[in-house]
Each structure stands twice: as structure tokens, then as C-alpha cells.
Amino acid sequence: MSGIPSNERRRPDRAALVIAPVLFAIAALIWWDAGRLAEMSNYSRIGPATVPHVVAIGLALLAVWTGFEAWRGDFPEREPIEVKPVVFIVAGLAGQMLLLKTAGFSIATGALFALTAFGFGRRKLWISLPIGIAFSFVVYIIFGRFLQLSLPAGPLEHLFF
């Protein structure tokens, strides 16, 4: 499977080719959603659905253009990426999100801190986790206690306050 015959160096960029249908799906979603809006009588003649329709058309056209460029292989070359560190950091963010209400700010954010460091190669969790929790607890004291930001409290925070 070769690309445009005149340019043997460039081949269809398959990963980039996926972007086109994604953009098209977003355009279709916006178009569909705008369709169920009630056009209420108003004096501006531009209703709530006008702008979403324009955005949807724009995205659909861009989807076609993207498909074309991806087929010609016009996207910049990509460096290979390492997936593992990304997974750890995403796990950290998801963990913080899920732990926040039950474990409180310090423990949840400490977990995020440790997992991020882990993703970047600091594998000693028994060091980074306590550091992260302690650091987050200090942040909690400054922002949650003294500056009155409403940060969720958990067992650790209740122990002290």
C-alpha cells in the first residue's frame, strides 16, 4: 500500500486518518443536538441552533480536509511514545478523583503525587507516597485552613482538625 505515486516518501498516516471520522462524529453530534432545540420566537432571527450548526459544518469540512492530508501523509512525523508512564499518571489523576471524597485531600493528592513521580521513574513508592501525603497535607493546612478554600477533608485531616 503506497501513497501518492508521485511522492514515494509519504504514505497514508493511519493514526492521523482516525482523526477524520472522530471530527466528523463530533460534527454529527453537535448537529443532532442542535436539532432538538426549540426555535422560540425572537427578534434577532438567530436562534440557539444557528451557531451550533455553523460549528458542525465547519468541523465536518475540517474532517474531510484532515482525511485528505492524512492520506497524503502530510502530518508531521511523530516520535514514538512510551505508553507506560502516561498510564501511571492517568491512574494517579483518576485515583485522586475517586479517593478525594472518602480519603480526603491529602491522601488522594499524595497518591497522585507518588504515581506521577513513579511514571517519571521514581519507583520507590514507600518514599514518594509519604512525601506526597506530607506535602499535600501542608498544602491543605495553608489553603484549606488558613485561606479557607473548601478542600475535602478525610481521616487524616479529621485527626488534626
Binding site: F135, V138, V139, I141, I142, F146, L147
Partner: peptide
């Protein structure tokens, strides 16, 4: 960096 934040903490405190 940690020290800097402790300093900030005590300042605000």
C-alpha cells in the same frame, strides 16, 4: 522547595 513552602505557610499563619 519544601522549605520555601513551609516558609509561606508560617508567613500566612
Amino acid at each position: 522547595t519544601l522549605l520555601k513552602h513551609f516558609f509561606l505557610a508560617s508567613l500566612i499563619a
